[in-house]
């Protein structure tokens, strides 16, 4: 089975303190650690597991600047066979829709039985690329997938609904599935694996190579234009407890006592 995995190189922000930069349109990236988007990490792992079971190839593709190579290297180290980076200054400020068009313009020329990507990206949280890509390719899709099984020319997937409920769907192949976190347990990469991956080639392509028009990418080809970023207004500001850990613990006890909770 030939599988394409679309990945994104994003800053890890779950535990970082973020600052909005001087332009007001993005965050300050210095000091942030970049890695493969968490959802894509699960998609990649799923692709490699499917390959190990049914044989075939895994190709990792990303749209992004040269820095994204570290994410592609990680994919190669984890079991991807090939990696493609789509890079062009004209791609700057592409939203999820423009990104899907860029991915489509290369993927339409490749053979695939399955395309996997994350259900969303940890930075913009759009959840748009997968289903739009499927639409452009004219193949079925399923989003927020928690389980994939294969039959003859089809797959049976579990999609996550709300409140712990899931739905089971039968989908014809080839198809695009967007993967929800928790579908598997991504493996660790050995130092050996990373070293080996350093020797593999990353194919780099730009706007001209993929036959897209300037007006189809970047801000011109996007649905959304960012006007400004700002810190979310506070609904209810917590009262901050100060002091040494021991003093703070005492304060918590007092609060719990006053509420009859201890």
């Amino acid at each position: 089975m030939d599988i394409i995995v679309c990945v994104k190189h994003v800053p890890e922000t779950a535990e970082a303190e973020l600052k909005i930069d001087a332009s007001g349109k993005t965050i300050e990236k210095t000091g942030l650690v970049f890695d493969i988007n968490e959802w894509d990490d699960y998609a990649l792992e799923e692709a490699v597991r499917i390959k190990e079971k049914f044989s075939g190839t895994v190709t990792a593709i990303t749209v992004g600047p040269e820095d994204s190579d570290s994410t592609l290297r990680k994919c190669l180290a984890r079991g991807a066979d090939k990696a493609i980076r789509l890079t062009d200054l004209k791609f700057t400020n592409s939203d999820a829709y423009a990104t899907a068009k860029i991915l489509y313009s290369i993927i339409k020329n490749l053979h695939f039985d399955l395309i996997l990507t994350g259900a969303q990206a940890g930075d913009d949280g759009s959840a748009v690329v997968g289903p739009v890509l499927a639409g452009l390719l004219g193949v079925p899709h399923a989003t927020m997938v928690k389980k994939i099984e294969f039959g003859e020319g089809k797959a049976v997937v579990n999609r996550e609904l709300e409140g712990g409920l899931e739905e089971r769907l039968e989908v014809k192949l080839p198809a695009v599935f967007t993967v929800q976190t928790g579908i598997n347990e991504p493996r660790y990469v050995s130092i050996m694996g990373i070293r080996k991956a350093m020797q593999k080639e990353i194919r780099v392509m730009g706007l001209a190579d993929i036959g897209l028009n300037e007006s189809e990418v970047g801000e011109a080809g996007s649905w959304l234009k960012i006007e400004k970023l700002y810190v979310p207004p506070v609904e209810k500001q917590a009262e901050f407890l100060q002091g040494s850990p021991d003093e703070i613990a005492t304060k918590i006890i007092e609060i719990l006592k006053s509420r009859g909770l201890v």
């Binding site: 973020l18 965050i27 970023l229 207004p233």
Partner: peptide, 11 residues
């Protein structure tokens, strides 16, 4: 964006 750490106004 970023898990709710930043709000974005977009057109």
């Amino acid at each position: 964006m970023y898990g709710g750490k930043v709000n974005v106004k977009a057109v």
